[in-house]
Nucleic acid binder design. Structure first.
Lengths: 134, 134
DNA sequence: CTAACTCCGACCTGATGAGTCTTATTTACA
DNA sequence: TGTAAATAAGACTCATCAGGTCGGAGTTAG
């Protein structure tokens, strides 16, 4: 299958929600979870990853929450996926983790055709910015 | 992640190998497994699926094996993936299994932007035929 | 100071994919 | 006709990972 994980789906929904808050609006994880019926704790972990990647900022304590860290135009969907999944986006393991990751690398006959498809996919995620999905 | 399964990788390698055999050449599963260092039993199961989908033909008994069932130009990569994975290709579950499969369907805000990316991906797999990767 | 609020990070669990094993069925050929 | 060669098909184990849970640490209002 060629499928996004739940974490990525939740991350996209969440960061989009944060981006739609005007004038430095801070949103709590609970608020987002309630709004979209997303499991709170799972969403929290996703938000933490987005925070560590510098896409959103976190504020602890009462009246804390999350806010967008930069302009929606400078955040691509790839960045969001990489932040959550760990930058190993690729349709085959050998394309992100090197030849050692695949024991048929030397005799594999489908690398080059597949790499074209992959380039296609990555470009699509790469050119789509957060601003476009708000 | 957006990754193909091992089964699909093996299936692509195998059907490509079969397609390169000239003049009705029949290839055994063992032959392919040896050639590419693929686990035999796993490969056998993949070949059975391709056979049931009508992409290759199987011949039992001594001197049996597999052969391509039709012209490589008429076999797309999507067909191969669907034969192996069961035609649920899509980057989100709700896009192949209907609204019931997703409990945030009604409030989900990322369906429409993602569906464009997905259309892009599917088209790439759809227009790439076996003939092109031989 | 303290209590409420919020993020943080380690832990647990169940589903799914990868791979193995065993047995049945079909077929060519000696 | 018997045997070896090949696919067919199911159950099984193991590893990985997505999904979900827990208690705790940090921060701020009052």
């Amino acid at each position: 299958m060629v499928r996004l994980s739940k974490r990525v789906e939740y991350g996209l929904i969440a960061i989009r929600h944060i981006a739609t808050q005007r004038n430095e609006g801070i949103v709590t994880a609970k608020e987002i979870a309630d709004c979209y019926q997303i499991p709170y704790e799972l969403l929290a972990k996703v938000l933490q990853k987005l925070s560590r990647a510098g896409l959103i900022t976190s504020h602890q304590g009462v009246r804390g929450g999350y806010a967008l860290a930069r302009n929606p135009n400078t955040i691509s969907v790839s960045m969001i996926i990489n932040a959550i999944e760990g930058s190993n986006m690729g349709i085959a393991r050998c394309m992100t983790e090197g030849p050692e990751s695949c024991d048929v690398f030397s005799v594999c006959t489908i690398k080059s055709p597949l790499s074209k498809v992959q380039a296609n996919i990555i470009q699509a995620f790469d050119t789509m910015t957060l601003a476009q999905i708000v």
